[in-house]
């Protein structure tokens, strides 16, 4: 049921048999951060998530924004952009099935980057407001999320350390940690 091939077929199936809710649910179950959550909480999150479409070149958020959302890329890809006064640099391209921005579920934070649709982009969006509503109902969630984030930061850093040891490190590898 939850095999990864299932996800790939989602796009075709959604329109006919599966309701958007069911496909949201199976997507969220794949997100590592949520995988340990109780089914009831996951259902609520799937139910409260919405889909947004961005045309190529449109910004999802800009530096300094507190958009208060996390995003799952359903289709297309997005560029993470470092904006400075005179120029913008593309740090990384995020493709399909990436989950971005989970930190902003926990606290209002200004974005350190901009995210721009590199192709036409369909996102599954969860707002902080909805997320905190679910957290209030399942207080044990917050601890699980914090643990998952701690693990994630540790992994990322570990990854960077490994890269550094192998002399592969470029400064941009460190960028984007706030996008976990």
């Amino acid at each position: 049921m939850n095999s990864s091939t299932d996800i790939d077929q989602n796009q075709n199936e959604t329109d006919q048999d599966k309701s958007e809710f069911i496909s949201n649910l199976s997507i969220l179950r794949q997100v590592r951060l949520f995988s340990s959550l109780p089914q009831e909480a996951l259902k609520l999150l799937a139910y409260l998530s919405t889909r947004e479409i961005y045309t190529r070149g449109e910004y999802v958020f800009r530096t300094g924004d507190d958009d208060g959302c996390s995003y799952y890329i359903l289709e297309g890809s997005a560029d993470l952009i470092l904006e400075s006064n005179d120029k913008s640099t593309v740090v990384r391209n995020y493709g399909q099935d990436r989950f971005l921005g989970c930190l902003s579920m926990l606290s209002p934070l200004p974005r350190l980057f901009a995210l721009k649709a590199a192709q036409n982009l369909t996102l599954l969006v969860m707002t902080r407001k909805n997320f905190s509503m679910v957290m209030e109902k399942f207080p044990e969630l917050s601890l699980q999320i914090v643990k998952a984030i701690a693990r994630r930061i540790n992994q990322s850093e570990g990854h960077n350390v490994e890269n550094y040891k192998q002399d592969k490190v470029g400064i941009t590898d460190f960028f984007g940690l706030s996008m976990i």
């Binding site: 809710f21 259902k43 609520l44 139910y47 409260l48 509503m133 109902k137």
Partner: peptide
């Protein structure tokens, strides 16, 4: 069936009923 199943754990929270 679906809605009752999703919302059964929080039946009295009006905010969840918006959708």
């Amino acid at each position: 069936e679906q809605t009752v199943d999703i919302l059964k754990s929080i039946p009295d929270e009006a905010l969840f009923f918006a959708q």
